[in-house]
Amino acid sequence: METLIINGNEKQFPDALPDTLADLIEQLEVESKTIIAEVDGRIVECDNFGKTKVTNGQKIELVRFMGGG
């Protein structure tokens, strides 16, 4: 089974991995316009989510702004 490490947690994909980062984010039901991703330590801007292929075992960080001082 294929897996991704998303925000530090292993997530398994019994059927198939999403094709791109945009597909993954859609599957997770996260609003994509306001998030920023890091794939294996490389920053991916939201404009490029659709062009970024997702592969087995990748470490993906999805971050966004929260209230802070």
Partner: peptide, 15 residues
């Protein structure tokens, strides 16, 4: 503002 991981299980309102 601060930058944090999205809570995948519970992605709430975007501030």
């Amino acid at each position: 503002v601060a930058l944090r991981r999205v809570d995948i299980e519970n992605p709430d309102d975007d501030m």
